[in-house]
């Protein structure tokens, strides 16, 4: 029976290793190997016996998938469970798998909306506003906007998960993240307005009428095509590019 506890260094190491959560992403186990790799510092701490440690590692290579930033919360929570298990508490492999599965899907539900559907496009819009004015630091601003949250949560998430356990995504945190998604959505809509204004009147000089008409046509086409998943925006953009080349030839 082990009485060992996870150190701050172990948690930091798990946060760092979480960066490789998707290094071997595959259709069968998705983030399974990456999860075991990120959890290894905790298992090294709790299971000095190599055979038991390998058994636990093998269990953790099973299927797992969630939004990669918020995975840190699940990592901390499961490390806490493994600590109890190693100390002899009645926590079996099935209980750990259940917690992983429940946390994975609920973190993915909020994480996909927060990171992929909101924070990443908002950060991109901030960068584009500067880049449209020819500023090199648009890219840096975009990167910083995203990463103060992404990297912060990746490291702090392990701490939170470890402290709060399987209830880490309880009502208060979920409500705060939902508020953030709503606020970022509104900010994003305002940023798009600002970008359209910047594209129409760069530096206060209105663009030619043909440019303004083409931008308006693009916006209308985009609104119409956004109703359907297929063809994708890139496929539409490729078609538009070929049509414009044809138009350039005919004019």
């Amino acid at each position: 029976m082990s009485e060992k506890r996870l150190t701050r260094g172990d948690r930091l190491s798990m946060g760092l290793r979480a960066a490789l959560l998707q290094a071997t992403w595959n259709y069968e186990r998705q983030q399974g190997l990456g999860w075991a790799w990120a959890l290894k510092p905790a298992l090294d701490r709790f299971y000095p016996d190599a055979e038991r440690r390998r058994e636990r590692l093998t269990e953790h290579t099973a299927y797992f998938n969630t939004q990669p930033t918020l995975a840190s919360l699940a990592l901390g929570a499961v490390a806490g469970l493994e600590e109890q298990r190693a100390a002899g508490a009645p926590v079996d492999a099935a209980a750990v798998a259940r917690v992983k599965s429940a946390l994975g899907s609920s973190l993915a539900a909020i994480g996909d909306r927060l990171f992929w559907l909101t924070l990443r496009p908002v950060a991109a819009c901030v960068g584009v506003v500067f880049a449209l004015n020819g500023r090199w630091f648009g890219a840096l601003t975009m990167w910083a906007c995203y990463n103060w949250f992404h990297l912060g949560l990746r490291f702090a998430g392990v701490e939170w998960g470890y402290r709060e356990g399987p209830e880490v995504l309880g009502t208060p945190l979920r409500a705060r993240l939902e508020d953030l998604v709503r606020g970022l959505g509104a900010l994003g809509a305002a940023l798009i307005g600002l970008i359209v204004a910047t594209v129409l009147v760069p530096g206060g000089n209105p663009r030619p009428m043909v440019f303004q008409a083409a931008l308006a046509a693009g916006l209308v086409l985009g609104m119409l095509t956004a109703q359907r998943a297929r063809p994708s925006p890139t496929e539409w953009a490729l078609g538009i590019g070929l049509l414009c080349i044809a138009a350039g030839w005919m004019r």
Binding site: I192, V199, V210, A217, G218, L221, M223
Partner: peptide, 22 residues
């Protein structure tokens, strides 16, 4: 000439998709 036409169309198309999502 084609770039003069394609650039605003592409920007408009992408921005509208983002606006729809927001």
């Amino acid at each position: 000439r084609a770039w003069g036409l394609a650039q605003p169309l592409w920007i408009g198309l992408g921005l509208a998709q983002l606006l729809h999502a927001f």
